[in-house]
Amino acid sequence: MAKKENKNRRDFLVISTYAFGAVGAGSFVWPLIDQMNPAADTLALASTEVDLEPLEEGQAITVKWRGKPVFIRHRTKEEIMSAKKENLDNLKDPQKDEDRVLNEKYIVLVGVCTHLGCVPLGQKTGDVKGEYGGWFCPCHGSHYDHSGRIRKGPAPVNLEVPNYKFLSDKLIRIG
């Protein structure tokens, strides 16, 4: 009887020693791992304001935000039409065009392919724009439409729409 009690006490001591050791090691390892996450100054990156005044219909500009390119395109009537008309059943990542724009004339997208992060072509006039006329990522062949939605190729989801708002008719702030 006394022996058994002794054994239970021993188990308790062993287990609690392990537990304390594990918690101690864990609380030392976490700072080592977490230091690799974005630092405070990286997180505090400023937002970017963009003036859309000089952007004519059919033109596009690329601005830098959080180290990444952001595509802004002043879409033509036909482009808007084709983006809105699209049957959602044809889409890999179904999303209405309305849900991807604040003002349907301007499409604002993070210019980073959702496959493995290349910058798709389609911003410059001479660029290959892919089979759906929007953007084309040359790295592994992803085709995006006028709404930046993925239509063909390995990318799993649509081009991301960043957080932005219209400060006035022709001025937006991204971030």
């Binding site: 791992i33 690799m36 996450n37 974005p38 630092a39 990286t42 959080r66 180290g67 990444k68 980073v112």
Partner: peptide, 17 residues
């Protein structure tokens, strides 16, 4: 990916590590 980069794209923290 953010953890690997130490930011929102491949940048200085990535190069350092």
């Amino acid at each position: 990916v953010t953890w690997l980069w130490g930011g929102f794209s491949v940048d200085n923290p990535t190069l350092n590590r």
